[in-house]
Design a protein around this nucleic acid. Structure first.
Length: 830
RNA sequence: GCGGCUGUGGCGAAAUUGGCAUACGCGGCGGGCUUAAAAUCCGCUGGGGAUUUUCCCCGUUGUCGGUUCGACUCCGACCAGCCGCACCA
């Protein structure tokens, strides 16, 4: 008998699948669809075990759903723009396109080598003009809707590189390439997408994802959006008539305890406040220092509060008290109004600030229970709700009542109003890089910002940029690109030289798969109607916030444009665990990758798939080791041998309708085992996603078949055939190549990939007899076998007549009897 | 600091969701085959005992407590590890 030769088998069946176009899927209205999607990879280096795990899970799901009769869409593509390509270009003098396409080729070959059942006709690559044209098209639509806008914002700037750095390129406050050079904050004009306009919807729609998205992802998104409800209150500046500063607070009820107003170091009002001050010079020095500090990680980490008094005062609109206006490094310009009221007694940060600078800490909320607070003796702020004191007309109210009443009064008197603030910021998409989508706008001296007309899309990346990693955006150094005509007036205009964040590319790629070759529109809405939502999205937890939030944002915008019909793109989300090596995730930059292909060459890809599924539950991280792979390899060899040994006799066997009534005990036992296994494997695959225990169950079945050798002695071929077929069908999603091979040996002509998932026989899958544990006072004292459906009294009677049990009961009083159907009897005696 | 997750043999883990804890696999030990090794096959693998072809006793799911006839599972507190956010007003 030939040995199990995975290489030969795998090549053989991959070819067959390709010829059969087995993984292709087209919209078939009326037929139930299933869209299963794995997050598209950034093609860098080689395919490693982390990728392999992601795609194996997706492929198992795709194959099970296909066997269940669904029209399964299972596409793959490339997140092909990005910084590593540009770095490789600088380092090796190779064009980013060449580097990227080389990697794509490598990745694609490896994926094909694993037999993942993708519809390759739908492949997309985000660095191709056919794709990024639509990024530009969407950008223009966003611009029209006021959802894209330009503003000055703070960015990280390395003075040595003379360029802007992404947040990820700032290491400990220094440039990643000039480790001795501190990054500066600079104000630069950038393009933003107005994600904040959708903050409420993004938050609200999370409710609908409960139960189908991992709870922690929902939580992370909730925190990220960070909604807080409070009030905006206006404090007039005492010394400057007509000037005022707005603060945002969630605790307006503590306003009588405010002993200062504190501004962020970049607050716009500071210019006016400090203008006539004799200490102007000193103040500006301090402000510059604070701004620098706010970009340095280590300074932020210490949490040390710094600030100074501006010499100006604000008027509390409620009580009329004058309180000093300060500047504080812990007040963020990006959140709320960039100014806070400082209530030391009831906010921990304010407490620390006040302690350092000697500001008073008036108590205006007393706890509902326990000892009253004393300003002199407080060691920390009291931040809980209680009862208002020393708060003018509001004294005596509960915190909740005070918040409601004071907000209403502020609104009535027009110095404040209720306000909801989000932590979420607008999405800055400008990148001073070459390898990305050019932002399709022009700057004309006469007409200002002019969008590129649709019929001039795509704005192509120039083929030969100078990539030095220094200076401005590389596109700025290509005159033929920069110098253009204004589409409005025909005069000279300058092209935008920044490119888009690559997260734009991945925010809608999952829709492009439906219609990848469409050159008139990003996609056909009719196809979206059929295929959406994505029924199952699978990827790493690292994308829990950014990618998934941006995609949700994009989808909602598309909905409002009438291009899609629903609000959420991903019905179910699964975040698989990482494959670790040395305790950290595999990645090329860490240099700890284990190549998936080497493994496939050595053991066969079915073995690799099986091990990937078996090693740990799919949501859990696991440390990669080759140790356990042997067991999987052995197992598949055993299966191969077992089936091959009998395939001669079985291939020709008709799967006659045999009656279980005429089956021998031995035949019944083996059929029962097979159907019970099928019942549980089906459950593990479809409901629980416990792939590891599904593998274990199949291993158990095979162990039993081997141990009992039911096959030698009188088991009819048609019974055996049934058992082997079930085994093969269960293996089909996990080890598809081997399963196809066995399927053929069992007398079928190929095409397991299109076979139906078997239904277990309820009669066989149900246990006919149950082993019931008999306990006396919770201790196991015997076991009895009973038939299913027996009445409780009968079971109890049999349990009591069990000799061992009877002996235990001798002369003792039975207090209570517990019967759990099919499981146990517990008799409690005094 | 806030929020969340996890904790079961030497290791990865299972327990059909409250009912015989440790299935399945790795590793280890012993044996068969072999001049030898690899591969493969058989047995053992929490502790102890026996009248040792089959049974008995004890212990046990991070720690302590609670609910229950019964807890890996539910509740409370704590400990440890990991992750996310972090001066968010």
């Amino acid at each position: 008998m030939a040995e199990y030769d995975p290489q030969a088998i795998e090549a053989k069946w991959q070819k067959v699948w390709e010829e059969q176009q087995a993984s292709w899927a087209d919209a078939e209205p009326g037929r139930p669809k299933y869209y299963v999607l794995e997050m598209l990879p950034y093609p860098s280096g080689t395919l490693h075990m982390g990728h392999m795990r992601n795609y194996t899970i997706g492929d198992v799901v795709a194959r099970v759903k296909r066997m269940r009769g669904y029209n399964v869409l299972h596409p793959m593509g490339w997140d092909a723009f990005g910084l590593p390509a540009e770095n490789a270009a600088i380092k090796h003098g190779i064009h980013p396109r060449e580097w990227t396409n080389g990697n794509i080729e490598e990745f694609k070959r490896a994926l094909k080598r694993f037999g993942f059942s993708y519809d390759w006709r739908r492949e997309i690559s985000s660095c191709e003009p056919e794709y990024y044209k639509w990024n530009q098209w969407f950008f223009l639509r966003l611009l029209e809707r006021g959802l894209a806008y330009r503003k000055k914002s703070r960015v990280n700037w390395c003075p040595k590189c003379a360029t802007v750095l992404a947040n990820e390129q700032v290491v400990n406050g220094c440039c990643w390439r000039h480790e001795d050079t501190q990054v500066e904050a600079r104000e630069i004009e950038q393009w933003f997408l107005r994600t904040t306009q959708y903050a409420e919807q993004l938050l609200d729609d999370l409710k609908g994802l409960e139960g189908t998205w991992p709870e922690r992802v929902i939580l992370m998104q909730r925190n990220w959006i960070g909604k807080s409800q409070g009030a905006r209150v206006r404090f007039a500046i005492a010394e400057l008539a007509g000037e005022a500063v707005d603060v945002f607070t969630t605790r307006i009820d503590t306003i009588y305890g405010a002993s200062a107003v504190i501004l962020a170091a970049t607050h716009p009002l500071l210019g006016k406040l400090l203008a006539g001050s004799p200490k102007r010079e000193e103040f500006h020095e301090k402000l510059a220092q604070m701004r620098r500090m706010s970009t340095k990680a280590e300074d932020l980490a210490t949490g040390e509060k710094e600030g100074f008094f501006t010499g100006r005062h604000a008027v509390n609109p409620f009580g009329g008290q004058k309180i000093p206006v300060w500047v504080g490094n812990f007040v963020l310009m990006e959140y709320g109004t960039g100014a806070v009221m400082c209530v030391p007694a009831h906010d921990q940060r304010d407490f620390e600030f006040a302690t350092k600078y000697g500001l008073p800490k008036p108590v205006v909320v007393q706890p509902s229970e326990g000892a009253p607070l004393d300003e002199k003796k407080m060691g920390e702020a009291f931040t809980e709700y209680g009862r208002a004191v020393n708060s003018g007309p509001y004294s005596g109210l509960s915190s909740e009542e005070a918040i409601a009443k004071m907000t209403a009064d502020a609104e009535a008197k027009k110095f404040g109003k209720a306000q909801t603030t989000y932590r979420l910021k607008d999405w800055g998409i400008s990148r001073q890089r070459y390898w990305g989508t050019p932002i399709p706008v022009l700057y004309c001296e006469k007409c200002g910002v002019v969008p590129v007309p649709d019929d001039q899309l795509p704005v192509l990346l120039p083929a030969h940029p100078k990539l030095t990693g220094e200076g401005q955006s590389p596109l700025a150094g290509v005159p033929e690109f920069v110098n253009a005509k204004c589409p409005k007036c025909g005069g000279a205009a300058r092209r935008e030289t920044d490119t888009m964040d690559t997260f734009v590319d991945s925010s809608w790629y999952f829709i492009r798969y439906l219609d990848p070759k469409n050159d008139r529109a990003p996609f056909d809405p009719a196809l979206v109607k059929y295929w959406f939502p994505v029924d199952q999205y699978i990827g790493g937890i690292v994308h829990a916030i950014l990618h998934l939030l941006y995609s949700r944002f994009f989808f909602k915008v598309l909905r409002d444009m009438g291009l899609v019909q629903s609000s959420e793109p991903f019905a179910r989300l699964f975040t698989q665990g990482m494959v670790l090596k040395g305790g950290v995730a595999m990645s090329k930059s860490r240099g700890n990758v284990v190549g998936a292909e080497e493994m496939a060459v050595q053991h066969g890809c079915d073995t690799g798939r099986l091990y990937t599924l078996f090693a740990a539950p799919p949501e859990k991280d696991y440390e990669w080791s080759f140790g356990g792979i042997k067991g999987c390899s052995r197992f598949l060899e055993n299966v191969y041998k077992l089936v091959s040994k009998h395939s001669g006799a079985l291939a020709s066997a008709r799967k006659a309708k045999f009656s279980t009534d005429t089956a021998s005990e031995k035949e019944k036992a083996v059929l029962r085992k097979a159907h019970q296994t099928l019942r549980r494997v089906t459950h593990d695959f479809e409901t629980r996603w416990h792939f590891n225990s599904a593998v274990a169950l199949v291993m158990e079945l095979v162990n039993e078949l081997q141990a009992h050798e039911p096959l030698e002695s009188g088991t009819r071929p048609e019974v055996l055939k049934e058992v082997f077929e079930l085994l093969t069908l269960m293996l089909a999603p996990m080890t598809p190549h081997l399963a196809e091979e066995l399927w053929e040996r069992l007398g079928h002509s190929g095409g397991l990939i299109r076979a139906s998932w078997p239904e277990f026989s309820p009669e066989l899958a149900a246990e006919e007899q149950f082993e019931i544990v008999v306990q006396v006072n919770g201790k196991v004292r015997g076991k009895i076998l009973v038939e299913g459906g027996l009445a409780e009294e009968e079971i109890l009677a049999r349990a009591l007549s069990e000799p061992n049990v009877a002996a235990q009961l001798d002369g003792r009083r039975v207090v209570r009897k517990i019967v759990v159907p099919n499981k146990l009897v517990n008799i409690v005696v005094a």
